[in-house]
């Protein structure tokens, strides 16, 4: 679904990010347009998740260089909640458990906050209940999860479904899904992938951060980026993902080192 004239949603220029004083992301350039699906792949420790968390505004991830425009606005001038309200969504690799906060109340609070920002009507608890149950059905989620605390005692797969449910409710312009496939069995992966595909439109975009090619069998990316050492060292199309699957990452790194040395 690549359309060259499509609106640019995210523009990353020379982004550098440090965690606890150590630079992890060392200069990323990336342009994401409406209607595109990008996959960011790479070995563990390559900086994929750091990049994702910095975009969402995690306070421990300090931007030390470069900049990011989100729909033309300087992303780093926005607090995490302002980014969410502006339409940026991060699906967490490890969704956080919040004992004592009911999932249903939390989902409604998040939904209504974002709706209010968009000038749309908020839903009362009864209306919301109907609405959220409909969305849960699409994700094959047990409505019993509404009555529990946020992610508290959920299995890995349940947590990931809860993330996609939040994405379905918040209808972001740009969703960054950080290792959403990890910890999912094949059935859960299919359900989650079909949920993501259903939410994808020509007006929004997805960035899938993933370690494995598996997810990309179900969600077909327009671009595949390989990250290593805090940089994107290669960009290709979905064929690249398959090649990585069969050949591993070493050849990309060697190719990159040769290019840099030249």
């Amino acid at each position: 679904m690549i359309a060259r004239e499509a609106k640019v949603l995210l523009e990353v220029r020379g982004l550098q990010v440090a965690v606890a004083g150590v630079e992890i992301v060392k200069g990323i350039d990336l342009v994401v347009r409406a209607g595109e699906i990008h996959a960011i792949m790479g070995p563990n420790g390559s900086g994929k998740s750091t990049f994702a968390k910095a975009l969402a505004g995690h306070p421990a991830y300090v931007v030390t260089g470069g900049g990011v425009l989100f729909e033309g606005r300087n992303l780093f001038e926005l607090a995490p909640e302002e980014r969410a309200r502006a339409g940026l969504f991060l699906g967490f690799q490890y969704p956080v458990e919040v004992p004592g906060v009911g999932n249903s109340a939390f989902l409604r609070l998040a939904y209504n906050t974002v709706q209010a920002t968009r000038g749309k009507d908020e839903l009362d608890p009864l209306e919301f209940d109907d609405f959220v149950r409909g969305k849960m059905k699409l994700l094959d989620m047990d409505p019993g999860f509404l009555d529990r605390s946020v992610n508290d005692g959920f299995s890995g797969g349940e947590k990931k479904r809860n993330e996609i449910l939040q994405m379905a409710l918040l209808e972001p312009r740009l969703a960054i899904l950080d290792e959403t496939d990890s910890g999912l069995d094949i059935d859960a992966l299919r359900v989650v992938a079909s949920g993501v595909n259903r939410l994808f439109t020509p007006d929004n975009a997805m960035v899938l951060v993933t370690h494995y090619q598996r997810l990309l069998n179900y969600i077909v990316p327009d671009y595949v980026h390989v990250m290593e050492g805090g940089r994107i060292i290669k960009t290709g199309d979905k064929a690249l993902a398959l090649e990585l699957e069969s050949r591993g990452y070493d050849w990309v790194m060697e190719e990159y080192r040769a290019r840099v040395a030249a």
Binding site: G57, P80, V96
Partner: peptide, 22 residues
């Protein structure tokens, strides 16, 4: 937990109150 709630659009004050309540 604060970051998680804020990443879903809840203000810092709201997230703070909600976590104390919880």
């Amino acid at each position: 937990q604060m970051f998680y709630l804020r990443s879903r659009g809840l203000s810092e004050a709201r997230a703070h109150n909600l976590l104390i309540y919880a």
